[in-house]
Write a protein that binds this DNA or RNA. Structure first.
Lengths: 201, 201
DNA sequence: TTAATTCCTTATCTTTTGTTAACGTTTTGA
DNA sequence: TCAAAACGTTAACAAAAGATAAGGAATTAA
């Protein structure tokens, strides 16, 4: 993917929330970089400050924690989704998690410094604030729903729902990552899958 | 609590994130109302659109879902914390949960319409956007940590952590609400408590 | 291409959790 | 003030989940 169409994808994403004039886009794009992330390479590593926020233009990444030497996958970002270790990025503290490319990926990045400058830019400031708010709100709603699922639903119900809403991306992801995402072990997910098979068969 | 000092508390909260001139505060306060919420009364009810966002100036509320006729408590807001059924407020769709006063409470409210007007106000717009962004980011971080806890920790670990970070507010809340919050049953929490007692005894 | 690794499933056993019910205590509300 | 309701704990049993290990299929990497 060439850098220009990657940037164009970022513009389209941004304008879904906040429309821009060509002049504003010109100003904003100055702060953006287009980077490639080879499979298995890290976007962020635990212990380091996440210095950028990005848009996945191509590919996919997974978020994971390491506990007792085990990797525990917490989230994914696919094409056309933002990615960052938000807490680290927002608070400038070391990240608690890794973000690793699941496939060769292309990411349009905005550094923390670039964001600050864009926010202070006379032309862009207001729109950047607005985009930031809308982005945070979007993820707030996602997280709220996920917490609700943990509290009100059984693992089996959570998996059934995921099957319905998850789309084709589910089939590109190893089961044990999905198990982690649901808060259960891979063995347990395998049993749930068998139970569901039997019912629907 | 008199309305004036309630408003003053809102201003203090707001200014922790975005400082205001007296003139700006004057403009903002026009959009605020000070309401009392008697114990057991509802701030929001499931099925209705949550039309406001508020600051708990005195008292406490709990968030809960109803599933299979059972109440499942998902969250709390105490003094000096914001409250709203965010998804409902932000998307103007019916809320999935109830928010009920645990004690007689005083809440400073900003209606959806009021917020819109404040955002379009020449003087305030930028600062309202910024406050909105910072508020959403704050909760984003909270939610992120809570999800991480569900994925990486056992119920017992989650409860132990809660005991350390929760503060005195924990002792004002019925155990079975806390059990729901942790994603387990009250019976299970009681057993965890006994295990912890024995270890620390 | 082949060897090594990863992945998913299955089985067994243990631990934890859920469910239901009972009991005494505390709180609530009429 | 007094009856009813709500609360926390415990017990007994059932159901589900975790841990560990083994086996075969698929994927990966040299």
């Amino acid at each position: 993917m060439d850098p220009l169409s990657a940037l164009q994808k970022f513009r389209e994403y941004f304008e879904r929330y906040v429309p821009l004039t060509d002049e504003e886009w010109q100003a904003l794009s100055q702060y953006l970089t287009v980077d490639t992330l080879k499979k298995k390479r890290f976007y962020v590593e635990a212990g380091k400050v996440c210095d950028h926020i990005g848009l996945v233009v191509k590919g996919a990444v997974r978020y994971y924690h390491v506990k007792d030497g085990e990797e525990i996958t917490g989230y994914f970002s696919f094409e056309d989704e933002m990615l960052s270790s938000y807490k680290s990025f927002l608070t400038r503290t070391p990240a608690a998690n890794y973000i690793q490319a699941l496939e060769d990926s292309v990411i349009v990045n905005l550094s923390h410094k670039g964001l600050q400058q864009a926010c202070m830019n006379e032309l862009l400031g207001f729109k950047m604030e607005r985009f930031g708010r809308l982005t945070a709100e979007l993820y707030l709603i996602c997280y709220e729903e996920r917490i609700t699922a943990f509290i009100t639903q059984s693992p089996e119900e959570r998996y059934s729902d995921l099957l319905q809403t998850g789309g084709e991306a589910l089939y590109r992801i190893p089961q044990h990552y999905i198990a982690n995402y649901l808060g259960i072990t891979p063995v347990s997910l395998s049993r749930i899958r068998r139970r569901i098979m039997k019912i629907s068969a």
